[in-house]
């Protein structure tokens, strides 16, 4: 099928490219823009490994068609650290050991970042509810929850956040 042009912003950088209508945003990010931090897991919106921000809202990029991104702002895990400095969320995942194999981690970082921007001081229950769209088969989730609580506390104590 003939490609069509789109213009969008990825991690703050304007992009112009040709996409096939049937490409997903996930495929476009990974295979065309080589932003391979975003992972493909289930491909049907259950696992959350492909989570990115579109216009500041977390979405499953496997369920977004590339042409839908035309004119929109997309943030991937590569856009979370700023100037080589990890964000509070990323730093907290490292400190708490909130990962093992790491495949789900970019999706969790995005979902946790979206949650803390909306609600900087969530309860454990709110964290678990908001991360329900991200699956992890290694950690048993507890260290991930602790990481998000640590990030929340770090933000509250006023450390300079990267994002």
């Amino acid at each position: 099928m003939a490609k069509i042009p789109i213009q969008f912003t990825v991690n703050g950088e304007p992009r112009e490219m040709m996409v096939e209508p049937a490409w997903t945003l996930l495929r476009t990010l990974r295979d065309e823009l080589l932003l391979t931090g975003t992972k493909e897991g289930c491909s049907n919106g259950n696992c959350g490994a492909c989570t990115v921000l579109v216009e500041g809202r977390s979405v499953n990029s496997c369920l977004v068609l590339a042409p839908e991104a035309d004119g929109l702002e997309v943030t991937t895990v590569e856009g979370i650290a700023r100037n080589g400095k990890l964000s509070h969320v990323q730093e907290a995942f490292v400190q708490e050991g909130g990962l093992q194999c790491g495949f789900c981690t970019p999706g969790f970082i995005i979902s946790a970042t979206a949650l803390l921007r909306r609600n900087p001081n969530p309860t454990e229950e709110e964290i678990r509810l908001n991360l329900a769209g991200n699956l992890c088969r290694c950690t048993g989730y507890d260290k991930i929850i602790k990481a998000v609580m640590r990030a929340s506390a770090a933000m509250a104590s006023g450390g300079a956040p990267a994002t």
């Binding site: 919106g45 959350g48 989570t51 979902s111 769209g133």
Partner: peptide, 9 residues
């Protein structure tokens, strides 16, 4: 419905 990601879309 679904997750936060699904509800956002």
């Amino acid at each position: 419905i679904g997750s936060v990601q699904i509800q956002n879309r």
